[in-house]
């Protein structure tokens, strides 16, 4: 079990191979692309913001994977920052969505089409 699940809690962590890093980066990139598709495709304001959170998640995985590869903690520090920005974005976006919903009684993006530049 210890061979399979190499949690690096104790020291002596083996260096990570570049191919292993590529696996994590592919998962991160695919999740980011899914978030992008969702943002473009969905017409519900709340689900659109949910898809931006999905993209935040993907960037977090990439940052942590690079941090592990380089054995450098700055990547994890940046993820704390990503979490902060995500929390702030959720607060503002949801306040905005509630405001828009009270005005039009709909969450559809098409209800606000006259804002198109």
């Amino acid at each position: 079990m210890q061979d399979v699940l190499t949690l690096a809690q104790a020291g002596g962590t083996p260096p990570m191979a570049g191919v292993t890093l590529a696996h994590y980066l592919f998962v991160s990139a695919a999740m980011f692309a899914l978030g992008l598709v969702g943002f473009l495709v969905r017409r519900n304001l709340i689900v659109m913001f949910l898809c931006t959170e999905l993209m935040f998640q993907a960037s977090g995985i990439a940052l942590i994977a690079f941090a592990r590869y380089h054995m450098e903690m700055s990547g994890q520090t940046f993820v704390i920052f990503v979490l902060t920005v995500a929390a702030a974005e959720a607060a503002l976006a949801l306040a905005l969505v509630v405001l828009l919903f009270r005005r039009r009684d709909s969450l559809s993006t098409e209800a606000w089409q006259e804002m198109r530049g």
């Binding site: 949690l7 809690q9 977090g60 942590i64 994977a65 592990r68 994890q76 993820v79």
Partner: peptide, 11 residues
């Protein structure tokens, strides 16, 4: 879970 595998337990 992926973070755990990447030895970022706190995060």
């Amino acid at each position: 879970g992926l973070y755990l595998l990447l030895s970022a337990e706190f995060m």
